[in-house]
Design a protein around this nucleic acid. Structure first.
Length: 505
RNA sequence: GGCCCGUUCGUCCAGCGGUUAGGACGCCAGGUUUUCAUCCUGGAAACAGGGGUUCGAUUCCCCUACGGGCUGCCA
């Protein structure tokens, strides 16, 4: 048994889609599980769709997730180059071989002519049947072919699919899949510009790079018979295929697309993508406050399960438990609520200081200049109350500044004017305390409430509003201990003035 | 339209001939708490339909319906 070699082969036509990340993840997990090699190959054979920066984006995304390839552009490996545009001559050589063996032919039809055919006939297909009527080296007389070849325009090489035979393969996920070759079109394998199409480049590279398992999206299932046919023509052993179910829109029809992020209000890309065109700017999971491991865990469960009820896995556990047989066959709808839940779980189990560093820039941007230790304390209190890292700051501004607005509703409902002086007194005592030990603070507050025979339920909520402005927040004693007894006391005294006015009005 | 793939709670998964069809997210109710959240307890919620095969089908086969993909000198 040869060692497992798998590849993730994205096309640098834009930012890497979250579905692509899952494909990369499954390849990575499969390699890890089998002690194999995970390879990155850049499929940039379409010059017209090439987007500068896309390759860097792909690598930065994989890096963020920790899904680093052992081979690939910039990662070493003995099967270089790993960028298809740099392998052009290799593909030409193999296309020639197919041509020489009679498994491919030259086609001279222009894209416009083919477009017209498709317009007039919805079912048009360039295949074993129609090719006899089209402009190619099979239908045209030899001298005419030679002439067109010499002219050198619009020369494409097409695969000569046999007329009527069964082409089948065993998919690792779907089992036996069979096609009749009459349903298959004569795919272009070498384009007019001399570049190969995906189909040729893909199988040549997979063979040359000794790929053992092709794990890719289901959109490739229909062209797999073409690939299998080419392996046969070359006399090569085909790798094993595993076609992954697609990720579908949360609601409505079709697969998740890049525009769905804006439409549904959540990211569909790992990290942000900035383009010259406003409508092509996308925010990423990273910038939106998600942790990479949480996203990975969520993605892993979208189309795969370990066969039991466990859902929380770190990457090591994931690769240990992973198996292709457990991949689900049906497409999965993207559920952002589940993703948020995973993220919250990871947030809760994250180290406070790590979280603090993660959100440090956000704090600075908001003009909150506090120590990293202070931020860590805030994270400790807030992490179980949020779903995304950025909410730690946006939901708890009272840790950084006195509240500007107060929850009127609760004040009107719970504030009794006779308690005002007591709360002011507590405020003064906190100022006098001049230290921030939680135990001492608790003694001051709860001690006073007990001494004066007051009710916790009447005093604490009002104090909370006075200090935080809102009813939502961590334990009050802990909060005071973090922002400081003196600051809290000052806020209390000031807020009572406002509350008194609010209640009399 | 044609070909291929699929179909268990709203969603993601478990189930691989005999189960009160299980878990998670979300939702609802209750408990804990100074609030929110976490956490705990409970609840509503599904085998697309029809034929077979079988003593017995959610599980196997066929048909229909529905969903998805492909049908480019894009990947």
């Amino acid at each position: 048994m040869s060692t497992v070699r798998v590849r993730f082969a994205p096309s640098p036509t834009g930012p890497l889609h979250i579905g692509g990340v899952r494909t990369a993840l499954y390849n990575y997990l499969f390699a890890k599980k089998n002690n194999g090699t995970f390879i990155l190959r850049i499929e940039d054979t379409d010059q017209t769709r090439y987007v500068p920066g896309a390759e860097e984006y792909i690598i930065e995304s994989l890096t963020w997730f920790g899904l680093l390839p052992q081979e690939g552009p910039g990662f070493g490996g003995e099967f270089w180059p790993y960028r298809q545009s740099e392998r052009k001559s290799i593909y030409k050589e193999y296309a020639d071989r197919l041509l020489a063996d009679g498994h491919a032919y030259y086609a001279f039809d222009t894209p416009e002519e083919l477009e017209t055919m498709r317009q007039t006939d919805q079912t048009f297909k360039y295949d074993s049947n129609s090719r006899t009527r089209l402009k190619n080296s099979l239908s045209l007389p030899a001298d005419k072919v030679a002439e067109l070849l010499a002219a050198g325009e619009h020369i494409a090489v097409r695969l000569k699919i046999p007329a009527n035979e069964t082409i089948a393969f065993d998919d690792e996920i779907r089992g036996h899949v069979a096609f009749n070759s009459r349903e298959l079109d004569d795919k272009v394998i070498l384009k007019g510009d001399g570049m190969p199409t995906y189909h040729l480049a893909n199988i040549v590279d997979d063979h040359l790079m000794q790929i053992t398992h092709v794990i890719r999206g289901e959109e490739w299932l229909s062209s797999t018979p073409h690939h299998v046919f080419m392996y046969r023509c070359f006399g090569w052993t085909a790798p094993k295929f595993a076609h992954l179910p697609l990720i579908l829109k949360p609601t409505g029809q079709g697969k998740l697309s890049k525009r769905d992020g804006a439409k549904f209000g959540f990211p569909v890309f790992p990290i942000s993508w900035d383009s010259d065109h406003e409508e092509d700017n996308f925010t990423g999971f990273r910038e939106d406050g998600y942790l990479p491991d949480a996203v990975l865990n969520f993605l892993a469960m979208l189309g795969w399960s370990p066969g039991n009820d466990q859902e929380l896995f770190n990457i090591e556990e994931l690769s240990e438990a992973f198996s292709i047989e457990k991949i689900v066959k049906a497409g999965a709808r993207f559920d952002i609520d589940k993703a948020k839940w995973f993220n919250q779980q990871y947030l809760i189990h994250s180290d406070n200081l790590k979280l603090a560093y993660l959100i440090q820039n956000q704090a600075i941007d908001a003009n909150y200049h506090v120590s990293i230790e202070y931020l860590a304390d805030v994270c400790g209190q807030m992490k179980e109350r949020v779903h995304k890292a950025d909410e730690i700051i946006s939901n708890a501004r009272f840790f950084f500044e006195a509240p500007h607005v107060y929850d009127d509703e609760t004040i009107k409902k719970k504030y009794k004017k006779e308690n005002g002086s007591h709360i002011k007194m507590i405020g003064q005592k906190l100022i006098d305390l001049s230290e921030n030990d939680a135990l001492k603070i608790e003694q001051v507050i709860k001690g006073y409430i007990a001494d004066q025979l007051l009710k916790m339920g009447e005093i604490m909520p009002i104090m909370r509003i006075g200090i935080c402005g809102t009813m939502q927040g961590p334990d009050l004693i802990q909060t005071v201990s973090i922002i400081g007894a003196s600051e809290a006391g000052t806020r209390l005294i000031k807020s009572i003035e406002i509350f008194d006015k609010l209640v009399t009005d």
